[in-house]
């Protein structure tokens, strides 16, 4: 627990909370792109900057996502320096991705409309390099199929060797988590394909549900989930689609037939 001052108001934070968590718990809006509750702080988009000062801290900008709230900290989320700096960050991001709706909406929420900077050369893409997909795939799923390649201006999300990934299990976490829709997942013609900015990074066959016949999972994902849940006495989830799995579990618990 820490006692901090947030935009002039004193408050107590939850134990071990970051400044961002404390602010959000108190209903203060701080923009973030690369932060995700499940993945922890990353500190790359820099939009969550706040002005902090404290007993041992000179007033300076810090990223609230990875700074732990500490006793005596005074946080200002809307100081002139924060507003000015954040505006430039938004403008720079909009210059890269001028048509990305979630970005434009977030910027507008913080008073930034449009950009003075020039749009990226070539076709602008929706990927803001927040790395949520990469971190989820590597840190949570454990597949490391989707990665960052190149550096600086060339940094982009892709699969190994810019080809359709051999490591991807087709779970779709990247597409589900992508904040801008730059990654899409499409189930069509018996296959599941994942696109980053319209380029296929994964193309896998789908298998049928043993019960209802719906195409719902890739064999790789089914194997992966089975391997992770083996020996726990559950029906093999790779065989049943989520709906049939739910019904079969309920039936097993209640002793009633599935229908």
């Amino acid at each position: 627990m820490a006692e901090i001052t947030l935009n002039g108001k004193e408050l107590e934070t939850a134990p071990g909370a970051t400044v961002l968590e404390a602010a959000r718990a108190a209903g203060v809006d701080i923009p973030t792109l690369c932060y995700h509750e499940a993945l922890g702080p990353y500190g790359a988009c820099r939009l969550c900057i706040v002005e902090a000062s404290g007993p041992v801290l000179k007033p300076s900008l810090i990223t609230s996502c990875n700074a732990k709230a500490a006793d005596g900290m005074a946080i200002n989320t809307e100081s002139p320096l924060v507003v000015k700096t954040r505006k430039i960050l938004f403008e720079l991001l909009i210059a890269r991705s001028p048509r990305t709706k979630p970005l434009l909406e977030m910027a507008a929420r913080f008073g930034v409309e449009g950009t003075r900077f020039k749009a990226a050369q070539g076709e602008p893409d929706n990927c803001l390099r927040c790395g949520i997909c990469v971190r989820a795939c590597t840190g949570k799923i454990g597949a490391s199929a989707i990665v960052f390649a190149r550096r600086g201006q060339g940094r982009h999300v892709t699969a190994e060797f810019e080809k359709s990934s051999s490591l991807c299990i087709g779970c779709g976490s990247c597409a589900n988590l992508c904040p801008t829709g730059a990654i899409r997942m499409l189930d069509e013609g018996g296959r599941r394909r994942i696109f980053v900015n319209e380029r296929v990074i994964s193309d896998l066959p789908l298998v049928e549900c043993r019960n209802c016949g719906r195409l719902f999972v890739t064999p790789k994902q089914a194997d992966y989930v089975n391997a992770k849940t083996s020996g726990q006495g559950r029906p093999s989830p790779g065989d049943l689609c989520p709906e049939c799995l739910r019904v079969s579990k309920a039936s097993a618990l209640s002793g009633l037939p599935p229908d």
């Binding site: 790359a44 960050l89 210059a95 900077f117 390099r129 550096r151 600086g152 201006q153």
Partner: peptide
């Protein structure tokens, strides 16, 4: 610096490019 930026954070990746322009 633009060429050598790792590209991880917004200000350095986008800022150097814009300044060079």
């Amino acid at each position: 610096c633009m060429d050598e930026s790792c590209g991880q954070c917004t200000p350095c990746r986008e800022g150097t490019k814009e300044m060079v322009r």
